[in-house]
Design a protein around this nucleic acid. Structure first.
Lengths: 190, 190, 190, 190
DNA sequence: TATGAATGAGTTTTCATTCAT
DNA sequence: AATGAATGAAAACTCATTCAT
């Protein structure tokens, strides 16, 4: 075998795509992505068959990265409030450390180039988190409502919080706290 | 003898643009928009100098439409909770009746083709609502937090609620209620 | 209406395509065709939706042109031998006067980009000729064999004759005569 | 220690090229040819310096194969009519048994990537056949005409016959007979 | 003012060929 | 010799915008 497809390059393409999509939306040219990844235009297509495949892969990869980041120090023994708080902080950490990926995700999430299959596959990336929520729902800690409604509430409010932090990084502490208060009140039973 | 630009056509273009952007994102071709509006390709550019101008105008127009819809039966005498509840229902009405405009807004909101100036100008479209919130903050009904944070919370949760309703229209009542509960808990003081 | 699509330009594109395909085969670039036709690259696609559409149209157009050229002084009263001889000469005239179209046809005929539908539609362009052959078959002037076999024999031998003439234009008379002798002996009953 | 180029692989490449060219024309990708031949993309270029070299080689190889197939049971003692009939049948055999090679030849024959030198070199592959024809011409069995004209007539009518057989394999016998009759009448003196 | 043909830069994708392994 | 990743120059096609009618 001459040389295997380099995992490093593959990652460089995804990283470059995240930056480009964050900046220009899903219409970011593949030529620009390739250049930023330090490869030739054509090489991109030996790593991803089409641009759509790249975008879908990027979506999946970021979702998994988020899932991993959230669960980095998750302990199942603790209370839901405590565990969720931890996860919230880890997600804020991730979002602050990866602004391009977060903004890319915003673009991808509303794009019709991300298939239903991709969206469904990605949902599994966060299943540990949703399992915990389900438990919270059953135990009555969380107000009675569809599980997915809770999950989307978390997503919406965390994205919103990250936007505020991105605009005023010095107020990160405060927004993180206020954001979580808002979230916990939003979903928990009084 | 020069005919004046027809207000009717102008509106037809904006309506067609909303449909097209909802379906295809901001990369929806101007040719397609023109065709749907019943005018020639070139005519579009006597109403809007560039495609970007059209998109920005569409953003502003929808924001104003939302502002008007929300306030349609707003009474300043009532309690904030009551007023907000009314506004919430009116917005759900609007969003349900205008799915294309709502989805177009989602696309426009994340596009870099909508300028900062446009976004700021549009904020004023909802100033009556935000004035009421400000009052609520000062009176202590709403938990202490930046005004804009509250406004964005409302926006995020209402968009989310509309998405759930769009997916399951028969559950509209329930989602409207659950959504508002989530919102009120999210922002109010216990 | 601003300006109708110019029939002149449409024809210029077809003519340029014939030249280009004759020289480079069906892989002749559309950019080259457009340049030769004196139009912009993009303009080609408002006259023909795709390159395949252009190639198919070219096939049809040349077939019709041949059909018209052959029948230019056809008299149905004469004997088949006489009529066919006339048609043969007219076709040699056409092929000699339109070498690019003839060579383009050779390329198109073997290309899988020409659809079955196109081929079938084009067959009708020569139906007057084939009708005469059918008559010849029934009357016994032509040896018993499938009609299509006769038609293809004519096509094969005329193309061959034109190739010889193209290589040695000064021997045109002789090749025309020898070619026809070959053809007549090939298909007629002794 | 350098291994010699494998004759087996070389042949596999030519066979794969014939299939690919038959199906896709001369624009068949070298990558596809290599894959079908069971070798790596790059390896193809140690057997044939360029794609053009491969195509030209393929042309020559098929011509030789045809030459060999035709002469497989040729006896010089017999009459020309008899010998030609035998050769005709052998060629129909070959063409029926090797449809891909035949169709590849059709593509190669009209391609400008096959050089004049290649075409001339290939003519010699059939020299035994043309020698016999020359003899026939001199003896007066064949109508007076250029030798090459006769050769091309044979080529044109045999290819045509094979096409009919390919479309209706069950009528092979009849087409073979009718085809030869057509040919013999076409070239012989009455 | 309204039209839509014309433009050409920009987009994704393909592919013959090279070369490090 | 064999591999297949890497290259980048095409290729077909799209589209915002202009402008003659």
């Amino acid at each position: 075998m001459a040389r295997p497809l380099s995992e490093e390059k593959r990652y460089a393409i995804l990283a470059a795509a995240a930056e480009a999509v964050a900046e220009l939306g899903v219409s970011a040219p593949t030529a620009k992505i390739a250049r930023a990844a330090g490869i030739a235009e054509g090489t991109l297509f030996s790593y991803f068959q089409t641009k759509d495949a790249l975008l879908n892969q990027l979506f999946i990869q970021i979702k998994h990265e988020i899932g991993a980041a959230i669960l980095v120090d998750y302990r199942s023994g603790n209370s839901l409030a405590h565990g969720l708080r931890r996860a919230w902080e880890r997600y804020i950490d991730w979002g602050t450390a990866n602004p391009a990926k977060r903004r890319a995700m915003v673009q991808l999430a509303v794009s019709d180039r991300i298939t239903k299959a991709t969206r469904e596959a990605s949902a599994h990336a966060l299943h540990e988190t949703t399992d915990a929520l389900d438990e919270g729902l059953r135990s009555g800690v969380i107000r009675k409502q569809p599980l997915e409604f809770v999950a989307c509430t978390i997503e919406a409010l965390s994205e919103m919080t990250l936007q505020f932090i991105a605009r005023e990084p010095t107020l990160r502490e405060r927004y993180t706290r206020t954001g979580f208060e808002t979230l916990w009140n939003a979903i928990s039973k009084r």
